[in-house]
Amino acid sequence: MSTETETGVEDGNTLFSDIDLSWEHRKNELFRWLLIAASLFGVVMLALLLFDVVTDFYTGLTEFNISLYEFFTQDGSQEETRAGFKGAVIASIMLMIMTAVLAFFVGVGSAIYLEEYAPDSRITRLIEANLANLAGVPSIVYGLLALAAVVNGIGIGPILIAGAVALGLLVMPIIIVSTQEALRAVPDSVRNGSYATGATKWQTIRRVVLPAAIPGIMTGTILALARAIGETAPLIMVGALFVNRTPSGPTDRFSAMPTQIYNWAAQPSEHFIHLAAVGIVVLLSFLFVMNGVAIYIRHRYETEV
């Protein structure tokens, strides 16, 4: 076959000359650069976005004389020069705590059931499939649910509890999935060791499995809350808009950080736009800190194991 025509020692330099690969390689290089350009697109957009926010933040402080001190100590206001972020920040923190309380126990409980107890039955598969679907439900729909069932249905009005219900249901699937992963990471040998001493399943879970999984669960929960704190649409649906006061308790009306930012960003006034930029920097700082804590927990306990 091939070698019939090529007997005899060939000159090394002409050995591969029957294969012209220059086009192949050029195609490959072209493709590589195309991929690099596409990959850079996302990076460039991220840089542009951050750059835009930071410059607006800066001009807000300098040209529009937004004082950070007043920004944090004053409530919202219709008057652009008097508007602050205090009420929104406090509402967001309260909202986060209430969301955590609502979603954490049920979420972790569901995950324990699914990972440790659930038989391989139809019902289990239904719950799992439903979970995957819930994670894909648009956040605004959770807002509609809370609006119809809690705000109008029970009739408690657009108060913090209603917002927390919407956000709690929204982050529940995220907490469940991350808890399941944390439980799965606990090796079975640990469980068997506990059973061998005569512990029941529940004792094993409470004393051995959960303590081993708790860093992972905490990391997942913090990340879920970081998602919740930036959610806007469900709160707007619940009616958390146009309130400037600092909420006095869980039953008070409120506007949180993202809804306040939306309110400002939707105004035609340049001053309000820059207030929104300052608010965004505050919101992103919250996210930054929360992600930092989550990463810290993960690393700290990963290295210990």
Binding site: V9, E10, G12, N13, L15, F16, I19, L21, E24, H25
Partner: peptide, 18 residues
């Protein structure tokens, strides 16, 4: 065939076709 396959000018893609 007397050509060092680790020479600079050898294309591994071409080599693998042989």
């Amino acid at each position: 065939r007397s050509k060092n396959v680790y020479d600079e000018d050898v294309d591994p893609v071409a080599l693998r076709r042989k």
